[in-house]
Design a binder for these strands. Structure first.
Lengths: 215, 215
DNA sequence: TTCCTTCTCCGCCGACAGACCGAGAGCCTT
DNA sequence: AAGGCTCTCGGTCTGTCGGCGGAGAAGGAA
């Protein structure tokens, strides 16, 4: 057996921290090297201790996501495992993109938590099944265009928008589609009108935000 | 107990289909209403049978992702569950965005498969833990900018680009940042030069493609 | 100090963008 | 046949964009 895995716990509820500590102390290979009750002290603690794993509550004073980002920046070898009571897909997505490795619900049992922490120390991610399900939902949602406005575009206008969204000028679009530049300008004007935006850049941004796939 | 869950299996290997069928037939509430060996016949079968769940191999002639998309379009009440041997995050992401509900690895045991199918019939998603881990990796990867060119931008230029990427005009950016429009134009010109693009739309597209997050 | 970068701002000017006007041809529904 | 939609193209005009050259102030590095 190697050195014990060094862990920092951050949660704004004392009871939760004590509970987790009590759970984890029954495992000899897990060592709790510090506790914090808000984002700022969690970040400071991780900067000082450089733990293997930081176990953070997603909702805590100062913000669990901000804490994740700061800890990952200050101490890259520290893997962040998030605990959450609720299943908010957007928050979880943001947390993952901020650098969180694993996400667990608080109803997890002690052995599974210990297992997740060991995996985290090795860089292996774990997603709670219910969280995974929510994440799937979220991904499916922002995958579907269904932004309404996009559907009002004609076939040709779609093509023109797609090329606009690649950064092409009117003349380049005309060349690519084999039509006149004046025609392209007409299509562009129609697209701007239908999308309710005032210039091609906003149209391109709209296309990207809507996840227009026809690249 | 309600009506049995109607399932279509699609896999290009006969042995796999027979194996799955043998597994599932031990469950009284699961009814296999058809088998297919490629995307085209799977789509046709689902259009005709309108099953509750389609169990597809991710790699099959015609493409599991295309099959997923077509089945979801032709028979929206059919939930798609994907089976895969490999853990390619990009493919899985694409599959989820094509409308797949759950993703499993082929090393799953029969009871877990049955459980996943029952959940799928109720619209509940299941992600295989190893797939979940890969998905997390992928999400973390395309979250980090690290596009090189972006790092040559100064702080102010970053801010200006971020606002360009939201579709703001020079005057709006000036207003937002509390500086003169001429100054904004200078920054914009510098950004265009550093990013090696010729207009603000291309810069905005670049920002989006690079996954610039500083919104 | 000197040099370099960054941020700020100025004027000039050509080029493209986008609005507004009209119009002909093809296609589909009524 | 009439009306509607789409795609095509034309002209005109105003505004913004973006390039070019210049410049002052502040801060850090050599």
């Amino acid at each position: 057996m190697n050195l014990p895995i060094r862990i920092v716990i951050a949660d704004d509820h004392v009871l939760v921290r004590q509970g987790i500590r009590a759970f984890l102390e029954t495992h000899a290979d897990l060592s709790i090297v510090g506790e914090a009750e808000d984002a700022a002290s969690a970040i400071a603690l991780c900067s000082a201790q450089m733990p293997d794993v930081a176990l953070l509550d997603l909702v805590m004073p100062g913000g669990g996501i901000e804490a994740t980002r700061a800890i990952r920046a200050a101490s890259p070898q520290t893997q962040v495992v998030l605990l959450t009571s609720f299943e908010n897909a957007q928050q979880i997505l943001a947390a993952v993109q901020a650098g969180a490795l694993s996400c667990l619900l608080k109803d997890i049992d002690a052995d599974a938590l210990a297992d997740t922490l060991r995996k985290a120390a090795r860089g292996e991610a774990v997603l709670h099944p219910r969280i995974a399900a929510r994440l799937m939902e979220a991904l499916r949602e922002d995958a579907d265009p269904a932004s309404g406005l996009l559907e009002s575009l004609s076939q040709r206008e779609h093509e023109v928008l797609a090329l606009m969204a690649e950064g092409l000028s009117n003349s380049s679009i005309a060349e690519r589609l084999g039509i006149g530049e004046k025609t392209v300008k007409t299509h562009v004007s129609n697209v701007l009108g239908k999308l309710n935006v005032s210039d091609r850049t906003q149209a391109a941004v709209y296309a990207w935000k809507s996840g227009m796939k026809q690249r």
